[in-house]
Amino acid sequence: MTLTAFIMQFLAPPLGFIWLSVLGLLFSFRRFGRGCMILGLMLLFLFSIPGLGMLVTMPLLETNTEWSVDDLKDADAIVVPSGGYFPNEIRFVSGEHSIRRGDYGLWLHQQTGLPLVLTGGRTYHPEAPAESEVLREFLNLNPESVWAEKKSMNSFEHAVNLEKGFSERGWAKRIVLVSSAMHMVRLSAGFRARGFEVIQVSIHDHIAEFKQEAGFLEHVFPSWQGLKITRRAFYSYAGILSYLVRGRIGISDVFHSEPSYLAPPSFWLGRG
């Protein structure tokens, strides 16, 4: 079990707060126990408030939408990591994150003429198709013109395997990296650690969309959405911490001065 998986399994909200409350209950006959129980319940309540969760995510979310495709044309390729898939009754189907990333990456490819690279391995089963292959098929792209890297099993391996592939193809390591908003900091840090120059283009995920369209009351009243936001932020921070502790990335890979953009929100966002 990886450090990130361990943290998410045993410490991430809401379970971490529940463990704290249970510990307090076991020692409720002592002041320490009562304090733990009250603290656990208070944290559970506070972090179920979506507005507080959004505050925690602020360092992870890009906000700059003032850019154009001309700002990307100095790159050598557009890289899109897959974001999950699942088997239905007859075949594997790309998940929502994969589809949104791939669709926007394809649009940028069409606008700029830059090569499009999809990356993602056989995360479901060793004999299953790779996530990148499933996404390429879903987008109806020609296997001869769109490279699908098929070995990566996590965010860091995307960078490691593409570094090898770029070297074999004689490509310079200047890329436009397209991924979900909450995924971008950890993902891009891995690429910088492998010597890539990265132009980040984040696309909206559920949390970025909530930030755009939720009203005041939705931000201040406790809800499951608040815990969901907090848990997703916790996962991102845990992944970054894990990479730092294991020496996969450095502080300068996380805090950088390279271009970073957010895709403009859909015209339909908030109109449903």
Rank of each mutant, 00 (worst) to 15 (best):
E96R: 11
V79M: 00
G53Y: 07
N64Y: 00
Q9F: 10
R34S: 08
I18H: 03
A148F: 07
M182D: 10
F6S: 13
E137A: 14
E89Q: 13
T119P: 01
T57R: 13
A172R: 11
E131S: 09
W19I: 12
P115D: 09
S179R: 07
V185S: 13
L61C: 00
N142K: 02
V79D: 02
K73V: 08
S252Q: 12
I38E: 07
I7D: 02
K164C: 06
I78D: 06
F6E: 04
I249P: 10
L3S: 13
D76Q: 13
S242Q: 14
D205V: 07
I49Y: 06
N161S: 08
L135H: 09
R248F: 07
S48G: 07
P222E: 14
A189M: 03
E149N: 03
I49M: 10
L15W: 12
S21T: 15
P259A: 04
L39D: 01
F234S: 11
M8I: 03
F86P: 00
H183L: 08
R30T: 14
Y237M: 09
G24K: 01
G53I: 10
P13W: 09
G239A: 05
G215W: 10
I249R: 08
E197F: 04
I7N: 13
S223R: 12
H206F: 12
D70T: 03
G215T: 10
F216H: 10
M37I: 06
R271A: 10
D71R: 06
E163H: 12
Q225D: 15
R34H: 00
S132T: 05
L55D: 08
F92S: 07
S180P: 06
F221Y: 14
E197I: 00
V93D: 08
A193Y: 00
A159K: 14
F6I: 14
N88Y: 06
P143F: 02
L114H: 05
G51N: 04
S152G: 01
P59I: 06
S167G: 05
I90C: 03
L114A: 02
P264L: 01
V220E: 10
F27A: 13
V178H: 11
P126L: 03
S180H: 06
P87W: 02
Q111S: 07
P14H: 02
P50H: 11
P126V: 00
Q111P: 02
Y243E: 15
M1I: 10
L106V: 00
F27I: 04
K173S: 00
R231N: 15
D205R: 04
I7W: 09
H204K: 01
F166L: 01
N140F: 00
G190N: 04
E137D: 15
D103L: 15
P126E: 09
G24I: 01
G250V: 04
R186W: 08
A263Q: 14
L61F: 03
G102L: 02
L227T: 12
S257I: 06
I203T: 13
H158D: 15
E66H: 09
Y104R: 06
R174H: 06
L139V: 04
M42C: 14
S68W: 01
A12N: 09
E96M: 14
Q225C: 11
E218K: 12
